[in-house]
C-alpha cells in the first residue's frame, strides 16, 4: 500500500470555504477591543481610587506625618501595581509568532516563568505597602480615641489585614500559580517532543 499517496489524497479532501476578508477584519477589531477592555477597567478603577485617596488627603488635612506617609504608601502600592499590570499586558502581547516552533516555545516558557515571578512578588509588595499605609494612616485618628476604642479599631484592622495576608493572598497566588504551572508543564512536554529524537 502506497501510504504516502493515500494520505495526501485523503488530506487534501478537507476544504473550508474562504471566509470573506471583511469577517477577518471585524474579528481583528473585536479581538483588539477585548484585549484592551480589562486593561482599561483596571486603570480606571485604580485611578478613581487614587483620586479618592487624594481627595481624603485634601479634605481632611491630616496633621501627623504618619498619616501622610500612610497615604503615600497606599498611593505607591497602587501605582506600582498599575505600572506592573500595564507592563505585563504589553509584555504578554509582544508574543513573536514569526520564529520557529522550538524558539517560540522557549519564548513562551520564559514569558510564563516571568509572569509567575512578577505576579507573586508584586502581589506581596502590594499587600505589604497597602497594609502599612492603612496602619500608619489610622494612627492619627486612633490617637484621638480612648484607649479601648483604639485597641478595638487596630484589632479589627489588623484582623482584616491578617485575613488578607494569610487567607486571600496565598489563595490568589496558589490559583495563579496552578494555572501557570500547568501551562509551563505542558509547554515543557511539547518542548521535550522537539528535543527528543
Amino acid at each position: 500500500m502506497n501510504t504516502n499517496i493515500d494520505f495526501k489524497n485523503l488530506w487534501n479532501m478537507q476544504e473550508m470555504a474562504i471566509p470573506d476578508t471583511k469577517e477577518l477584519f471585524e474579528k481583528t477589531n473585536e479581538f483588539k477591543k477585548k484585549s484592551y477592555q480589562k486593561l482599561i477597567l483596571a486603570n480606571v478603577t485604580l485611578i478613581f481610587t487614587t483620586a479618592f485617596i487624594l481627595f481624603v488627603w485634601y479634605h481632611y488635612q491630616p496633621e501627623f506625618i504618619t498619616s501622610k506617609i500612610g497615604i503615600v504608601c497606599m498611593l505607591f502600592a497602587m501605582f506600582l501595581y498599575l505600572f506592573v499590570y500595564n507592563q505585563m499586558a504589553i509584555f504578554l502581547k509582544s508574543n513573536n509568532y514569526e520564529m520557529d516552533t522550538l524558539h517560540y516555545l522557549q519564548q513562551l516558557l520564559k514569558l510564563k516563568e516571568k509572569q509567575l515571578f512578577l505576579q507573586t512578588t508584586i502581589l506581596n509588595v502590594y499587600f505589604i505597602l497597602l497594609s502599612l499605609g492603612i496602619g500608619l494612616y489610622m494612627y492619627e485618628y486612633t490617637c484621638r480615641m480612648t484607649m479601648i476604642w483604639a485597641i478595638v479599631t487596630y484589632g479589627v484592622t489588623l484582623f482584616w489585614i491578617a485575613l488578607n495576608w494569610f487567607v486571600f493572598r496565598p489563595k490568589t497566588i496558589r490559583k495563579q500559580q496552578k494555572t501557570l504551572n500547568e501551562l509551563i508543564e505542558k509547554f515543557e512536554k511539547i518542548n521535550n517532543q522537539l528535543v527528543q529524537n
Binding site: 508574543n95 509568532y97 514569526e98 520564529m99 520557529d100 516552533t101 517560540y104 516555545l105 513562551l108 501551562l183 505542558k186 509547554f187 511539547i190
Partner: peptide, 11 residues
Amino acid sequence: RIASNHCLRQI
C-alpha cells in the same frame, strides 16, 4: 511558522 505557533498557543 505563524500558523504552527498559533496552533501551539491553543493549549
